[in-house]
């Protein structure tokens, strides 16, 4: 079981689309694939539209990526959170750490302006 990772550069922003459940089973590999993408541009958008569930280990992976981005003086933005994912992240406090937007296109529009 893996999480599919598709990345592209657009308007100076790195957009990373994830597809699949992020759990302890998938988060190790995901982390290895995500970390090299951080710092390629000043902003990394992580699109979770195709992520139905993120476990405790998965949330930690996202936070780790976020921390790494901060260390490299870049930012991460989460988009496309399902209601369930948002609820879990909100209840456990993880939501507080992230910049969360509606969708990748809203971020790209804002950056272009």
């Amino acid at each position: 079981m893996t999480v599919e990772v598709r990345s592209r550069e657009q308007d100076g922003v790195t957009v990373v689309e994830l597809d699949g459940e992020i759990t302890s089973v998938t988060s190790g590999e995901l982390q290895q694939r995500l970390l090299p993408l951080i710092g390629r541009s000043s902003t990394t958008v992580i699109d979770l539209t195709q992520v139905p569930y993120i476990s405790s280990a998965g949330l930690r992976t996202l936070l780790l990526v976020h921390r790494r981005a901060l260390r490299e003086a870049t930012s991460t933005i989460l988009v496309g959170l399902s209601e369930e994912v948002r609820f879990v992240m909100s209840s456990t406090g993880f939501l507080n750490f992230f910049d969360v937007r509606e969708s990748a296109s809203s971020v790209l529009g804002a950056v272009r302006e």
Partner: peptide, 20 residues
């Protein structure tokens, strides 16, 4: 007592409550 107890995340939820 955790909204996320079914996912085993009660510790994070509890700590976030204390922090706030």
């Amino acid at each position: 007592y955790a909204a996320t107890g079914r996912f085993g995340m009660q510790a994070d939820e509890f700590k976030t409550m204390v922090k706030e």
